[in-house]
Design a protein around this nucleic acid. Structure first.
Lengths: 114, 114
DNA sequence: AATAGTACCTAGTTTGTCTAAATAGTAGTT
DNA sequence: AACTACTATTTAGACAAACTAGGTACTATT
């Protein structure tokens, strides 16, 4: 199983998080699990990568964070819920364009017959 | 034009260089131009990224380098010519697999309808 | 002599992922 | 009660690879 992690991910994680949040808000651990699920076991993403990414994105105004209310029915550790902002939505569109350009160019270079 | 550079490239450059060299040996500057051509103006790759990458790859035994002979017919700065080694060829196969896995996973996450 | 293109080199900066820990609540087991 | 495991968040420090921003040197053209 080719593991996707580290340098390969650099610069691509933010778009992936934006994309996951487009389907609905979610807390950090949930975003992590959604990404790992979507990665089908090949995506090795750690908490230590995701949480700092979320903080950067919050600072950049791409996502808005709130603490889950105390009086929610569930028990367990508090969760911080992230949602896309308008700016984040625009950034997602740009991320998709960048991804397509990137995948097109690198794909062509990697796959073109010798 | 979406520019492909910096963090986006991290971890992907080595495979691209291997792939370009599969089509035939070449010197550093030539590899740079070939990549920029293949990138159709979108790939912003600098010498300061490529040369160190070539040194790393030489050290890792993926490519073999030699100085162009002095008595070659052309005039101009000396060139250092890089060629794939057997190990480099094997690594290229692995790079392609990794690329496909990466592009598949990230593509699915980026493009999947919300 | 000035400019531009080819060709290589490299010290130092940047930055985002990862390592590796810590904290804390809940649930199930022995 | 003690344990293990899972959920959930936090963060200091390490690391590595692309980049910045220069430098050298030869050739050709204006």
């Amino acid at each position: 199983m080719a593991d996707i992690q580290g340098n390969l991910l650099r610069g691509h994680l933010e778009g992936m998080v934006l994309s996951v949040l487009e389907r609905g808000e979610g807390h950090g651990y949930e975003i992590l699990k959604r990404l790992q699920d979507l990665g089908n076991g090949a995506l090795e993403l750690r908490e230590g990568s995701l949480y700092p990414a979320l903080y950067r994105m919050e600072e950049a105004g791409l996502v808005q964070a709130r603490w889950e209310s105390d009086d929610s029915p569930r028990r367990g550790p508090r969760r911080r819920i992230y949602a896309l902002t308008e700016k984040g939505r625009r950034e997602l569109l740009r991320s998709r364009e960048t991804w397509r350009a990137f995948a097109g160019v690198v794909g062509r270079i990697m796959e073109e017959p010798a």
